[in-house]
Design a protein around this nucleic acid. Structure first.
Lengths: 202, 202, 202, 202
DNA sequence: TTTTAACCGAGACGGTACGTCCCGTCTTTTT
DNA sequence: AAAAAGACGGGACGTACCGTCTCGGTTAAAA
């Protein structure tokens, strides 16, 4: 007599294989392969796995890449919470530091660039990687408004867009020029932005 | 016997063919093909041209796409020059309006996203499409500083990054959500940014 | 303590399964699958059995097919024994009638054709299906020699080869042409052959 | 202005490639591969050719094997024409000698055995390899009847079947037993058969 | 009774070959 | 000499089976 939650018949899927496949995928993306340059055959070879094993789990490349990217937990920095400035600098500096790693850059590229072509992929990336960071930043800003440190009428969404968009644009521009984004970039951006954000009495 | 300025012997290259190839390329990109999904075979077929004719003129896909993108002249908006605010709003609103067209969006994507993979392509796009706009915007800001409308110690480059980056981030976010970026987005961004940029006496 | 002839411990093999497997195999062969086209997966599916259950009993396809073919008992016709002619016609006509059934034809093909590739398979088929018939025919001819109906110096083996080979060749040719082998084929072959086999006084 | 019989535009198909493909196919068949064991990939590799090049010319394996087998010209022995016996022995002995070569045996097997499964293949083999030999043998027998050496009422088709079928059966039996067919086999068969074929006065 | 050993089905595993599509190159006739 | 057509060797696609390997669940002899 079997209980609820009983396993389906047959050999269960190997977690080792699944992990190896996802790792191989991330490795190859990290080495610069785009979604369409990434070959399932290469993933299978690097993972030491048959192609069948991949196709049994994912219907196509896009879904595999989606799951692989979603695997990457964005470890949000813990934030002191003393001043809005400090917290925002901490968040933005994580973005700058991420941009220094080829792997992260490739992953960003793949996730952002193919948005138009692989919308579901972007959707997942958005949910797991972007939205949590946005939520954290939104909390900081709203707390700032609540404490009176920031203007009461601040458009929090717009403020977030300014901070995030500016940092992304800079890291992109820097990586293009071959130069590294300056270490104090985060604080410069935050300082400039806060000029307009702060409440009069602050 | 040939005259000065003589054409080289043999059949001259067909301008029709060249144009047809570039048009086909832009069409296909506009329909959503990425650099790697774009197939030379498809370009040739759509242009009604032999593959040889393409490979005779361009060494590889990247150069073809590069030339095709460079073809697209970015018509800079003429700017009234009355106030910094008006000018910036005008420039940013062009970006917003561009983002409404699928074709422009695809081209942006291809140019921006494959930066890591196709650096020379990005380089050309940068030179022909981005840099002129940056120069125009820089001129507006510097004029603002000169007239005292903006802070004397304003970091012009950082300010440009804030304006451009914010708009790009928003158009991306909007296109992802399926929503159109709000028509007054440009003015809202500029207004928020100018709070910090303006000089005390302004 | 166990008695002689005791069954081994554990669950005994299911006879149902075994029979279902053999039947499925014969069905599929009868439907035209060659040894190499016959897929174990198809056998398992049709028999409603796991692949393991097949591989537990037979080391490979060849052995399975061998056992399956050996299952088919070739029911030798009972022979009147009045004249050599009548008996030979009876034997040969069985071959003709067999050739009318697709299933028999497929089995013949598989057994005969893959002789080079699956020699042991052919060996088994030879032992169970061919040799008994040859023995029967040999007995008829030797009795004919003994009774003086046939030449004393008749090469019995050669005579058998002539009768069997001719009939096989004809049935093959007929099945290829789509035509049925003529109903009096057996008697025509025997009559023609006996012209040379008969003793002078007969 | 183009003349009749002008070649189609584009690069013509390479005869070298075609020959290499057919040769590789025959080699692999000669090494014992059946139609279904024969892999196009192996043919391509051995021929030093892309798979595309094979599939461009043949729709599937069967057609390739068909063309490959049809390539094999059956070089009919020239026949003295003095007596029916001599001529028949010459023809049958060619069959016996053919059976000594593994390659010929494999080709025979593939052509004959897969008759049921690959009827068109067999058809072509029949036309190019079997029918010419049958015609030659028929001519010999009919000449024998005309000269009075053979019975006027001889069933020529049946006689051919007896000779051919017997030889085939023997070579098969011999190759199965591992033994070589005896060198005088052809003459023994012919002698036995002619006993019945000859006219009374002969 | 309770082990316990072998079987059962289902189904995942690493592979090989399939036949298709496109790559970028090469070779031919036509313009 | 360039154009178009199209064949070339190569490589990845996604599918179908291969023969092997776990699994949870019978089944029946041995303890």
């Amino acid at each position: 007599m079997s209980v609820t939650g009983t396993r389906p018949a047959g050999r269960p899927r190997s977690e080792r294989a699944e992990k190896a496949i996802v790792d191989a995928t991330l490795d190859l993306i990290g080495e610069g392969a785009s979604v369409s340059e990434l070959s399932i055959e290469a993933v299978a070879a690097r993972a030491g796995v048959g192609k069948t094993t991949i196709y049994r789990r994912w219907a196509n490349k896009e879904e595999l890449v989606g799951d692989a990217l979603a695997t990457l937990k964005a470890p949000l920095p813990v934030v002191a919470g003393r001043t809005v400035r400090e917290d925002l600098v901490a968040y933005l500096d994580v973005m700058r530091q991420d941009s220094l790693h080829v792997r992260t850059r490739c992953i960003m590229n793949i996730a952002m660039s193919d948005q138009e072509r692989h919308p579901r992929l972007y959707e997942r990336f958005h949910q797991t990687a972007i939205e949590p960071r946005r939520a954290a930043m939104r909390a900081v800003l709203e707390r700032g408004v609540a404490t009176g440190e920031l203007r009461a009428d601040l458009d929090v969404e717009l403020a977030m867009g300014m901070l995030t968009g500016t940092m992304l644009w800079y890291t992109k521009a820097a990586s293009h020029g071959g130069a590294l984004p300056s270490p104090d970039l985060a604080s410069r951006i935050v300082d400039e932005a806060l000029r307009g954000f702060r409440s009069a009495q602050a």
